[in-house]
Design a protein around this nucleic acid. Structure first.
Length: 571
RNA sequence: UGGGGCGUAGCCAAGCGGUAAGGCAGCGGGCUUUGAUCCCGCCAUUCGCAGGUUCGAAUCCUGCCGCCCCAGCCA
């Protein structure tokens, strides 16, 4: 682990899985706990995977056990080395370490093949020559039993020969499959002679053309688990029906070195987004988002680029809990975790996103002062910095109202406001253009009220941030919002597809934002709090010292916005 | 309709026969040179519903209701 995110002495039974693990340890069923995170390299990892990663690596770490990172690469048609690289990168970024235990299902192809031969020899598997459509017909339905394939009774010798032929490449794709011989009448469809191997003449990203037959998930996965000595094979609920098959395979192969136990938990659902590789891939392929790491995506790469700290993600996964219940987690929980982390770690700075010019009419022309600002209000050890101050400043357009709503305590005609770390100023006059838009606000400042002076003790209702016009650095800032407008975009409501619920305002790019000079040297990937606005990260791809580009990670909690919502201006 | 699961607050989630933890959200208040942070307080007489067992039930039993998953040579 990268840091101390996991409590040193975790409660033994934080969730039902940890209870089972603790019981197994107490009962002496295992000496060390071994788990695994087994993604298929056919896309990028997302929050749902983060939950699984935290669970698997967490359980191992808490018990002094081991966790494998295993790439489940049994379908060369869909998989790619680029995804393997991205997965490895993301798991490491999240803060987990697999040591020497980086494996691939394809590492075991030979042994999985041997297991298949063993099953055939035991009369527990056979080569079927039904085509896919026929096989579906024979499978039956949810309510009707299936029928035995006419090829089900082939002899062991014939099956062995046929299977060898499959491996040797003597048949075309789809001509034969290897099936387990279980029970075509089983009420559990997974037990109706599931396919174990299919022919696929495709180049595999790791094994190349060494194979033209590839094991199915159900077969490869359980054997990989057993070979790695996995004690607890944790997966999501949709595999619950597969557990009897998982156990059946284990029963038929007594030579395997371990007997893993599969336990299922519910997958993570996050409101206002989608987490299915298919839909994420679609958003990427159709260029609806900029890529797998688009900051609006719930991919780990996206959240990383968005500026979510890995510790916040781990905290989130922990708070969400592990159960078997269907759920829909609110975005506010994730955002709370992000804010909580960033509040303590992010240095503060001033930035004006939508600038409005303020001229201090009684401030000496050409004079520059350097005011002292704390880098963090609660962490003096982070030091202070000097912020240039002058006659002309930029303030946020929202911080001035010519006709202020009730309880507005920012700048308004005739009103006073405190400039953060600076002086109290009074609005004397408003300058407008031909269209009546406010272009400048003319104010006077009170020299006695400079921060630190006794005169600064005067009570003023509001404090606003500002940037010296003469020293400001110009930047682009991207404001991100939820990608979808409804809590469950993929619910299929009214027969509408998730893409019909895209939020047209999920990205707003602001140009001409003004930053205080200290931000000019921000490192790509560094996260700051722009005071009173939110947390912002220097984009890890597009940001450069001479050309700053920041992403809004998350806004600050904003009770003023809530007030406004409750009583909109004019109401 | 067959099989497998799941129902505790707006959203998560503890609970394991002894009288409903905690977090998020929300609301009220305090502090504040960030309308942030922080601090304090409030927020389930009731656990999908109905019966039953028991001195005592969210926990045990029975029946019902609702929701999710499964008919890829995907994982």
């Amino acid at each position: 682990m990268a840091d101390e995110a996991t409590p040193a002495a975790p409660a033994p039974g934080r969730d039902f899985i940890r209870q089972i693990v603790a019981d197994d340890l107490a009962a002496g069923r295992h000496r060390v706990i071994v788990t695994r995170f087994p993604p298929e390299p056919n896309g990028f990892l997302h929050v749902g995977h983060a939950k699984s990663i935290c669970l698997n690596f967490g359980v191992a770490a808490e018990t002094g056990g081991q966790c494998y990172l295993r790439l489940d690469d049994t379908n060369p048609l869909k998989e790619d080395q680029a995804y393997v690289d991205a997965i490895i990168d993301c798991v490491r970024w999240l803060g987990f370490d697999w040591g020497e235990r980086l494996t691939h299902a394809s590492d075991y192809f030979e042994r999985i093949h041997d297991c298949a031969v063993q099953l055939i020899e035991a009369g527990k598997a056979y080569v079927d020559s039904l085509d896919a459509d026929r096989m579906r017909e024979y499978r039956g339905t949810l309510t009707e039993p299936g029928r035995d394939s006419p090829f089900r009774s082939r002899s062991v010798a014939e099956n062995l020969e046929l299977f060898a032929g499959m491996r040797a490449g003597r048949y075309a794709d789809g001509e034969h499959v290897l099936r387990a011989k279980i029970d075509m009448a089983s009420p559990n469809i997974n037990l109706r002679d599931p396919v174990l191997y299919r022919i696929r003449r495709a180049t595999h990203q790791r094994t190349g053309d060494a194979w033209c037959i590839y094991p199915m998930y159900d077969f490869a996965h359980v054997i990989s688990d057993a070979l790695e000595g996995i004690t607890h094979s944790l997966c999501t609920l949709e595999f619950e029906d597969h557990r009897p098959l998982y156990d059946w395979i284990l029963d038929q192969l007594p030579g395997l070195p371990a007997r893993p136990r599969q336990i299922e938990f519910s997958r993570l659902n996050l409101a206002f987004t989608v987490t299915s590789k298919r839909k994420l891939a679609e958003l990427v392929d159709r260029r609806i988002v900029a890529g797998w790491d688009d900051p609006r995506l719930p991919t780990i790469a996206g959240m990383r680029r968005r500026g979510y700290p890995p510790a916040a993600l781990r905290d989130f996964c922990q708070r969400v809990g592990i159960t078997k219940k269907e759920h829909l987690i609110q975005m506010s929980l994730l955002e709370n975790c992000v804010r909580e982390d960033l509040n303590t770690t992010a240095p503060r700075a001033a930035a004006v996103l939508r600038p409005l010019k303020v001229v201090l009419t009684n401030y000496p022309e050409g004079q520059v002062e350097h005011l002292t600002a704390a880098n963090h209000p609660d962490r003096p050890e982070l030091g202070e910095r000097a912020v240039p101050f002058g006659r002309e400043l930029w303030i946020e357009q929202d911080d001035f109202a010519e006709v202020p709503p009730p309880k507005f305590h920012r700048l308004k005609p005739g009103g006073e406001v405190r400039l953060r770390y600076g002086y109290i100023i009074k609005c004397e006059r408003v300058v407008k253009d031909a269209d009546g838009h406010v272009t400048e606000v003319h104010c006077t400042y009170d020299p006695e009220t400079r921060s630190g002076l006794p005169g600064a003790d005067r009570k003023v209702k509001g404090t606003i941030h500002w940037v010296s016009a003469a020293h400001a650095v110009t930047a682009d800032v991207r404001l991100y919002d939820r990608l979808f407008t409804v809590p469950r975009p993929d619910a299929g409501t009214d027969g509408r597809e998730y893409r019909e619920f895209l939020n047209p305002a999920s990205l707003e790019t602001l140009t001409g934002c003004r930053l205080e000079p200290a931000l000019a040297t921000a490192a790509a990937g560094s996260t700051w709090q722009f005071e009173r606005l939110g947390y912002f990260v220097a984009d890890r791809e597009d940001h450069a010292p001479g050309r700053p580009v920041f992403n809004r990670v998350v806004t600050l909690r904003d009770s003023w916005a809530r007030l406004e919502e409750a009583a909109p201006p004019g109401a």
